[in-house]
């Protein structure tokens, strides 16, 4: 059984945290918002904006969605494709 969730950071957010992936130890399901709170406590994390686009396992998610150990949470800066 996995006991962590993987957090992926992209573009400017990866620059702010100095990392593009972080594994958070986690024994039980929490919300996306809880994950964001944990990431904000890391060095550089306080510079992240209050509202962020997030995805869980490749799907856009809201801050109240649940994540479980083994899930992949991605923090997505404002999209700039096209």
């Amino acid at each position: 059984m996995p006991e962590s969730i993987r957090v992926l950071l992209f573009a400017r957010y990866a620059e702010l945290l100095g990392a593009d992936r972080i594994d958070l130890a986690l024994a039980e399901a929490v919300t996306v918002g809880d994950v964001l709170d944990r990431v904000r406590m890391l060095p550089g994390g306080s510079a992240l904006p209050g509202a962020m686009l997030c995805a869980v396992n490749l799907r856009q998610a809201t801050h109240s969605d649940l994540v479980s150990p083994g899930d992949e949470v991605a923090l997505l800066p404002p999209l700039a494709g096209g």
Binding site: A11, R12, L76, P77, P78, L79, A80, G81, G82
Partner: peptide
Amino acid sequence: IDEVKRRVPIWKREYYEDGTVAWVDPTA
């Protein structure tokens, strides 16, 4: 093309002639 801009997680880093660099952010 409108949906690509709205939904696809892609980011753009621009390098300018004056030597500065920026992340394109349509919300900024």
